[in-house]
Design a protein around this nucleic acid. Structure first.
Lengths: 200, 200
DNA sequence: GTATACTGTATTGACTCGATACTAAAAGTG
DNA sequence: CACTTTTAGTATCGAGTCAATACAGTATAC
């Protein structure tokens, strides 16, 4: 038990420092930490997960709040709203060229990359795996979507050199298979059943 | 590089979920996530680190902001301010009984402990070590204090069954050696020199 | 003793955030 | 088909965080 408190404190503190970095990074463009996170997410998500709703689920904030952040980013010309062709309720958020540059700079965060470089590659790898599993369990506890990389999903299929999603029954571009999907569902028996994740 | 982005995303997301939990936990008492973090910190720090300034450094927010949070918590009767006897500029923040109970409930967070329990003890241990090292490097990059547990500090000494701090030249109670100290300095040669940490 | 550094407070304005109520589109139901 | 229900997103509001600035009181250096 004491162990888990310690772990909580560590992650919380690292998270706080990261938010501090985001604040500094966004300062030049007049952006708040949340805005930086939104841009980062949009650079990683696919055509199904680049909506305000997915964003709110991913960031753990209400959709009303997301709506406001989106307006700010749109006014600054960093993102654009594109209405969905099939479902006209849905809006897709896409990064503009300016937006892409801002994300690029944010990811090129010196402090963070310096920090990572000072840790052995093997350790980084291990941490990423451990944390990914922790996150998966945590999202299960919250009954939330897991937002994994498409390629690692149990519905991801590869046949005749064509990628496709078995859940949505649609073909995928090669570049999309490395993006975050909001319907993601790990193919991993050792972590237990997947009944908590929404599957039609 | 891509590796470090992935790691960043993981920690950020876990941090977001934790803040979401804090929001829920604090809701019953009308507390904001920050307030919960303040209470958590105060339950872990020693008599040198329970000041507004240490708090602001630990949480990565300005001391003005801390001052306001402190007022809120004081009005709610969760903490009390105690002036230092030697240095009358300094204020010590101590948890009231009510405050201690709130922290206890916060730490007893079901979702988090469930999550931790589902991971092997060995993995938790490993993660804690890895993350501690990451945090240490990160604080170095930020030229910040490391806020470690007193007992693990290079200035911590144990002689004739008495604990003491070699930096401040004062005796320590046994219970204090398990608390967070703001002058903390790891005794760890493999992670490089300690010149970035402030030592008189 | 005076200048300087340090700890904490007060105030202000920009902004986040959740809550609520709302519109519009889709999907389900008879 | 009309109808209800569900879903995606928006608008508005008030509470509250947060940094910035200016400030008061105390300690330390010289």
């Amino acid at each position: 038990m004491k162990n888990s408190q310690h772990l909580l404190g560590l992650i919380e503190r690292i998270g706080n420092l990261l938010r501090l970095e985001e604040r500094e990074l966004g300062k030049a463009d007049g952006l708040q930490p949340v805005h930086v996170q939104v841009l980062e997410y949009l650079s990683l998500c696919n055509r199904f997960s680049n909506t305000p709703l997915s964003l709110s689920r991913y960031l753990g904030i209400s959709k009303g709040t997301v709506s406001q952040s989106v307006i700010v980013l749109e006014n600054k010309g960093l993102i654009k709203k594109v209405q969905d062709n099939n479902d006209r309720r849905i809006v897709h958020l896409v990064l503009s060229e300016t937006g892409k540059n801002v994300v690029k700079n944010a990811f090129a965060n010196e402090r963070w990359s310096n920090t990572c470089e000072r840790l052995p590659a093997q350790q980084r790898e291990r941490m990423a795996e451990d944390l990914a599993q922790l996150l998966l369990e945590l999202t299960r506890q919250h009954s939330m979507q897991s937002f994994g990389v498409c390629r690692t999903c149990k519905y991801f299929t590869y046949e005749n050199s064509n990628y496709s999603c078995a859940l949505l029954q649609i073909p995928l571009k090669a570049s999309e298979t490395a993006k975050l999907c909001h319907e993601h569902c790990f193919f991993d028996s050792k972590t237990g059943s997947d009944e908590s994740l929404s599957v039609p």
